[in-house]
Design a protein around this nucleic acid. Sequence first.
DNA 1: TAAGGGATTGCCT
DNA 2: GGCAATCCCTTAG
Length: 207
Amino acid sequence: MAIQSKRPDTFYQQHDTLTLAQKLLGSELVHDSPEGRTAGIIVETEAYLWGDPACHAYRRQTTRNAAMFGPPGTLYVYLIYGMYHCVNVVSGAIGIGEAVLIRALEPTEGLDLMRARRQERYLVAGTKSKPLSDKELCSGPAKLVQAMGIRLAEHNFSSLTQGPLFVSSPFSAAAAEIVTTTRIGITQGADLPYRFYVKNNPFVSKR
DNA sequence: TAAGGGATTGCCT
DNA sequence: GGCAATCCCTTAG
């Protein structure tokens, strides 16, 4: 296993949100949990900006979006549709509610643990019997939260620069081609080109 | 205080 | 491809 360097505070401080959303592509998200390590290369992101009607911080700071107003490199985790969670990397200055949504990972480590976490719900429900394929583990914002063992109570407000959940620099600096397009699942600001993904990567949630 | 709705997912037709 | 599931937060009254 190669030595991985944790992205420092300056990585999150020096880039504006749209740039950070692209810089995060190719970086690896790592979680060293008590159950073991899971990790994946970030292959799809979306930016949510100040003054952007789709941004959770668009109106004002509230209890739900408070983490977005923290320092860059903070995690913002929220509940969506009453049953799933999504994770964001907070960006922009303190007091400015901007963030980058992590939408998909290419799994690199701990795939069995990911599978176990993802299938837990099905095993309980007893509906799904077939093991999930590698592509089904992290190809969506709520999927990767499950697979990585990210939880609202534990990780909202936590920092990516200190602690067991962090972003590492890529192993190879091979510049992948980035596709820029519109964001998924939103109604407001649907025409803004704030979604980025690695071209031709099969682990991206949607083409 | 009440009611609407969402940065999704997976099952069903 | 369409749609239900399922909560809590936010906004309106």
